[in-house]
């Protein structure tokens, strides 16, 4: 693959086919951790780490263990295993380096395991027959897109917290409406890249 093609993968995963706003994967942490900018940033970094690492590890497991041994039907299971291990590892690192962030992320940190975006990336890599570097770039791009949207959304929610919102819309309602509007905005990237 040429550099240009890796660039296209990046643009595609970050903007055009953004995992949260276009593919609608990974909505749980998107809604749950976006109240404050600091926690959202922490979550974004954790997910980036997990996504990239698990994308690479999944590729390796698939290419060097499952395919040679003709066990491709086990890929969902083994990908989940890989993701769970990576998330556990990340949890330990976060707990050590920033216990406050650990407590604040709370249940959402282990829930990265069930973040469909993470499993989605691994499976889409297989579907698209990406090589090692392409898988890595794809995973990294997906996480950048996720982080971008998460941080933007958190910043908007902070402003919404002090705004004059009519009673029926306060809380999660206005957050979901905002997410919907963001999604419509990202539709503007449609047609840039065809993947």
């Amino acid at each position: 693959m040429t550099i240009g093609e890796y660039g296209l993968i990046l643009v595609s995963t970050v903007l055009v086919n953004n995992f949260v706003l276009v593919k609608f994967l990974g909505l749980c942490p998107f809604m749950g951790v976006s109240r404050k900018l600091e926690t959202a940033t922490g979550m974004a970094l954790a997910t980036t780490f997990v996504l990239t690492l698990s994308s690479v590890c999944s590729y390796l497991v698939h290419a060097y263990i499952l395919q040679p041994l003709d066990l491709v039907f086990l890929r969902t299971l083994s990908f989940i295993l890989v993701i769970a291990v990576v998330v556990q590892f990340t949890e330990m690192v976060v707990h050590k380096t920033s216990p406050v962030l650990y407590k604040i992320l709370g249940i959402y940190l282990p829930l990265i395991t069930t973040n469909c975006a993470v499993l989605g990336v691994a499976l889409l890599n297989v579907q698209a027959n990406h090589g090692f570097l392409a898988s890595a770039v794809y995973g990294f791009g997906a996480s950048v897109g996720f982080s971008l949207v998460l941080v933007i959304f958190a910043a908007m929610r902070e402003r919404l917290a002090s705004a004059d919102i009519p009673e029926p819309f306060r809380g999660q309602s206005i957050a979901l409406i905002t997410a919907g509007l963001m999604s419509m905005a990202f539709l503007g990237f449609d047609g840039w890249v065809r993947t």
Binding site: V85, Q88, F89, M92, V93, H95, K96, P99, V100, K103
Partner: peptide, 15 residues
């Protein structure tokens, strides 16, 4: 993971 659990052991709970 076992190795990581030892390497990244956290002592107390400052929260």
């Amino acid at each position: 993971l076992g190795f990581a659990a030892i390497r990244f052991k956290v002592e107390s709970d400052p929260l």
